[in-house]
């Protein structure tokens, strides 16, 4: 960014470039733009709720549309692309390679995001970011909901493509002198979330397709009137989006692992337990999706198993707090 300001280039040179730092700039700038767009919607919601009764939004459907697009924007158009942006910039440098493994795929993955974003924002759907069936199947007004489905489909493909790129870059293009155990923890966090994305996203992609065919009336996967089960949608959804929570947070934790030791001028408390925490979170993250569904009428056994997995998850999450140990170590030892 500093280099760009010191020696400006025409914008199309950045836009049509496939170099990892240029794609990273595109990712970072567009995700920050989406952060502000989603933020404006958030401020609108808060302004509306400043007092009971209608304030600035005329009808409830507009309000429902606003919180849907706000949620979708913040999660899919800010959180994921922002991590990809920082990862694109730093991961090749951290593993000492000249670029990402597949530079063109990298640029394609980025350029799918504006397309998905346009579908989400022009449709302005009211399904809420979870799009629970059967509301999204039998009642949500089209074409907004259909545009939302296609938009998320495209964004999902984009994040799977960029994840494949990260995994190959880290595992195949890493400098031979750099063992995985010595690789910086931010690169470790990108490796973890990329593997998680590749495993998690296809489930939601399948659910989106089923939802689309349900909406078209040719199938009834989630429509009880046609013998379907609305709870099945929630299982598919949360099987993707519980791990997705860690996909959102792990790059931020990876950044903390890089930033805190450098600015406190103390070595990281323990590199290996950081790696262990990432891997634990990634594995257990796939077992605890059910705690989002406790109120849907789960059996006692299901609740017990899911609670147990969630407690293990919390344990793994606490291991991440060892960067706080670096911090307290710094205070204690001056």
């Amino acid at each position: 960014m500093v280099l760009e300001l010191a020696k400006p280039r025409p914008i199309w040179q950045i836009m049509f470039s496939t170099h990892h730092t240029d794609v990273a700039l595109l990712y970072t700038i567009s995700s920050l733009a989406f952060l502000f767009m989603g933020g404006v919607l958030a401020l609108t919601i808060r302004a509306e709720l400043f007092a009971p009764g209608p304030q600035i939004i005329a009808d409830s459907i507009t309000f429902n549309r606003i919180f849907t697009v706000h949620g979708t924007t913040m999660l899919f158009l800010f959180a994921i692309p922002f991590a990809s942006g920082i990862g694109n910039y730093l991961v090749p440098i951290m593993v000492r390679y000249k670029d990402m493994a597949y530079p063109k795929l990298n640029a394609i993955a980025f350029w799918m995001i504006p397309v998905g974003a346009a579908l989400v924002w022009l449709g302005f759907s009211d399904v809420s970011w979870t799009a629970y069936a059967p509301y999204s199947v039998i009642r949500a007004p089209g074409p907004a909901a259909d545009m939302w489905i296609f938009g998320l489909k495209i964004i999902g493909i984009s994040s799977v493509l960029s994840s494949i790129n990260f995994v190959v870059t880290i595992l195949k293009c890493k400098h031979p002198d750099l063992p995985l155990s010595k690789m910086p923890l931010f690169a470790w966090s990108m490796l973890t979330i990329s593997l998680m994305t590749i495993v998690a996203i296809p489930t939601f992609a399948a659910a989106l397709l089923m939802m689309l065919t349900d909406r078209l009336g040719v199938s009834g996967f989630f429509n009880p009137a046609m013998g379907g089960d609305p709870i099945a949608y929630q299982h598919l959804f949360w099987f993707t989006f519980h791990p997705e929570v860690y996909i959102f947070i792990l790059p931020a934790i990876g950044m903390m692992y890089e930033i805190i030791p450098r600015f406190s001028r103390k070595p990281l408390y323990s590199q290996s337990s950081g790696i262990f925490a990432f891997v634990m979170l990634a594995i257990i993250g796939f077992a605890s999706w059910g705690h989002h569904m406790f109120a849907t009428g789960m059996s006692f056994t299901e609740k017990t198993v899911e609670s147990l997995c969630s407690f293990l998850q919390v344990l793994a999450a606490f291991l991440i707090r060892q960067c706080h140990l670096t911090f307290s170590h710094m205070i204690l030892t001056g």
Partner: peptide, 9 residues
């Protein structure tokens, strides 16, 4: 408790 069509919670 959720009210889900087709189920009794």
């Amino acid at each position: 408790q959720d009210a889900v069509p087709g189920r009794i919670n």
